[in-house]
């Protein structure tokens, strides 16, 4: 009797949540898979099934390729900056955790992660501005010629990587800090007695022991960087009389195909590709973790 009552309670409690979850997650995900095999222009009622035609078109769509390449460069660029810098900063902050400034260190690194994206991106847009920006002013003190940061095809991508890394770094540092706190103090003490320098114990103890954290941070950073959009939107935006330089990324291409070109099915197939990339990255992470455990 009591068991049945408990069973009933659990069912009644979880059903509404499950219903919402299904409606806002499961169904849309299923829908994106279905739409990717159809042709639909929003306005018309019929959505003919066209098999893999959307995906076949993706393979020869130059704009999509451009978006895919840009996004991948940005994602891996952010990764290369964020993860090493994140672990190094976390090690330093952890080392100075008793310092009276430790909460300043932590907070200052983390604040960019929580402030609104658009205002933060605007600050960077001004910094990078070729004419008025402080970056060129700063570089000119060293005799560097002013650069058109946001217009040069290579520099504009670097700008986006810098902006995204600035935002992602705090998260990486935070996770690493938690990781450092779990590492056994005695091991470091032993290493110190053996004459290891701080740098050596960082390299030979911390880095290997934090490998699972590094993998986690890498995947989270990569996945969120693959969805980059707001940063590009602000940095590349142009006013009527002052063209900007568009850096095409996947989410932008998707939204453009869907809501400007009225090709929802085609946009859905792009979303499926994005999903596949994320799944592969996650899979790689898990298999790397498993490798390590079996060793």
């Amino acid at each position: 009797m009591r068991i049945r009552k408990r069973w009933l309670f659990s069912l009644l409690a979880i059903l509404p949540v499950l219903a919402i979850f299904t409606y806002v997650r499961i169904i849309p995900i299923g829908e994106i898979l279905r739409l990717s095999l159809h042709k639909w222009d929003i306005l018309s009622r019929n959505k003919p099934f066209i098999g893999f035609a959307n995906f076949i078109e993706l393979t020869r769509d130059r704009l999509f390729h451009e978006a895919l390449i840009n996004t991948a460069i940005i994602a891996f660029g952010v990764l290369i900056i964020t993860v090493p810098l994140g672990i190094a900063l976390a090690a330093l902050i952890h080392h100075r955790v008793k310092s009276r400034f430790s909460s300043f260190y932590e907070t200052s690194v983390f604040i960019p992660h929580v402030v609104s994206l658009v205002p933060a991106a605007m600050a960077w847009k001004w910094i990078f501005d070729a004419r008025l920006g402080p970056l060129n002013a700063f570089l000119s003190m060293f005799g560097v010629q002013p650069q058109a940061w946001l217009f040069d095809p290579v520099l504009s991508i670097i700008c986006i990587i810098v902006l995204c890394s600035w935002q992602a770094l705090g998260y990486a540092v935070l996770i690493y800090l938690v990781g450092f706190k779990t590492l056994p103090e005695s091991l470091y003490e032993a290493a110190r007695l053996d004459g290891a320098t701080g740098l050596q114990s960082f390299w030979f103890l911390s880095v290997p022991m934090l490998k699972p954290i590094s993998l986690y941070v890498s995947v989270v950073t990569l996945v969120s960087a693959f969805n980059v959009y707001a940063q590009v939107y602000v940095l590349a935006s142009d006013a009527q009389g002052a063209p900007g330089r568009q850096v095409r990324v996947m989410v932008l291409d998707m939204l453009e195909n869907s809501f400007r070109n009225y090709r929802v099915g085609y946009a859905a197939s792009e979303a499926v590709v994005l999903l596949l990339i994320v799944l592969i990255l996650t899979y790689v992470q898990f298999s790397l973790l498993r490798d390590r455990r079996t060793k």
Binding site: I32, L35, A271, L275
Partner: peptide, 8 residues
């Protein structure tokens, strides 16, 4: 990612 199923 949210962006994947945003359109539906």
């Amino acid at each position: 990612p949210f962006e994947v199923y945003m359109i539906p």
